[in-house]
């Protein structure tokens, strides 16, 4: 493995871990639920994506042949993150809006 490739993989790993950490800082620090959703959906997803791509490059270089199945995981994460965020915000809105009313409509 060439030294520049190693630098690149290390860079991707550090950036990925950094974004993951930033997403969790946002989760812990922001004051309101709807603001907290922003951290994990965008930042953490990008962080894990970049780390998984680092893993794909690493195993393509050191192992035998290209390692493609990491790409599937990245695509999966990018598809599912907005869906779960959407459901969570919908639930939160439903609970906060329905707390004051007696007749909850579903």
């Amino acid at each position: 493995m060439s030294i520049w490739l190693e630098y690149f993989i290390s860079f991707l790993i550090i950036v990925g871990a950094g974004f993951t950490l930033l997403g969790s800082i946002g989760l812990a620090r922001l004051p309101d639920f709807f603001m907290r959703v922003h951290g994990p959906t965008k930042t953490t997803t990008l962080g894990v994506g970049s780390m998984v791509i680092a893993s794909a490059i690493y195993f393509s270089v050191t192992g035998d042949g290209v390692s493609l199945h990491e790409i599937i995981a990245t695509v999966f994460l990018f598809i599912t993150a907005p869906v779960s965020a959407h459901l969570l915000t919908k639930t939160a809105l439903h609970i906060t809006a329905g707390a004051g009313r007696a007749d909850k409509q579903t």
């Binding site: 959703v37 959407h86 915000t89």
Partner: peptide
Amino acid sequence: SLTPGTVSID
């Protein structure tokens, strides 16, 4: 949901 500063709710 994935792009700048917004999360879709409903």
